[in-house]
């Protein structure tokens, strides 16, 4: 464990909690893409299948359980509890455009052709595009509440910190996970234009972020 990965996990947890609290306190999921949240729940489910078979550390196990619980709680709030506030017509991204390439690629490019490895690879590739429905919704509605932008900021920052973690681990322990690194770089690239908007718009106290 190094400071970059710990900071990354904390940012990831903060992002998930920001979104969950926003939905719970405002009792509304307006402006939130339910599809992205479903994809994140799938990412955690397919990645943490070794939750009961491989023990790494108490931290690892606890964080996996927390991420699974919070992501399913978020999906529950969106599609069950506050479903009457869910504007599905804005959440119109075609998930098959993401799932088909990701499933195909995880069968082509993986470390081992075993169910657990393929599902892990699928979760890594899926995570890199899981935010697309949310970013698509923001470009479609042309705006995002500031709390949603804070959520996206921490979510993007988490994987950027993981890249720093991979650089650190490569130089200190020769660790190199090609699939995770390539996918993580692609994922972070998707956030770059958002980071620009976030810094120029939201942090200047503009409250709501309206796209040009």
């Amino acid at each position: 464990m190094n400071i970059f990965r710990l900071a990354g996990d904390v940012c990831h947890l903060v992002a998930i909690i920001i979104l969950l609290l926003k939905i719970w306190r405002s009792r509304s999921c307006a402006g939130i893409s339910g599809k992205s949240q479903v994809l994140f729940a799938i990412v955690f489910t397919t990645r943490y299948l070794d939750l009961f078979t491989v023990f790494i550390s108490p931290y690892n196990t606890i964080m996996k359980v927390v991420f699974l619980a919070l992501s399913y709680a978020t999906v529950y709030l969106i599609y069950m509890r506050f479903r009457n506030t869910f504007n599905s017509e804005n959440d119109s991204f075609r998930l098959e455009f993401l799932l088909v390439p990701v499933i195909g690629l995880s069968f082509l490019e993986n470390y081992a052709f075993t169910p657990l490895e393929i599902l892990w690879t699928f979760s890594i590739f899926l995570e890199s595009v899981a935010i697309m429905p949310q970013l698509f919704m923001i470009t479609k509605t042309g705006e995002a509440e500031s709390i949603t932008t804070h959520y996206l900021f921490f979510l993007g920052l988490y994987r950027a910190l993981y890249i720093a973690n991979w650089v650190w681990r490569y130089h200190t322990e020769g660790f190199f996970d090609q699939i995770a690194v390539v996918s993580g770089v692609v994922q972070t690239i998707f956030y770059i234009d958002f980071f620009y908007l976030y810094v120029t718009k939201v942090l200047r106290g503009r409250g709501k972020m309206t796209l040009p």
Binding site: H12, I56, Y111, A112, F175, D177
Partner: peptide, 10 residues
């Protein structure tokens, strides 16, 4: 090296 099996990252 390529990593398989033990995955210690979240």
């Amino acid at each position: 090296e390529r990593v398989t099996g033990r995955k210690d990252e979240l």
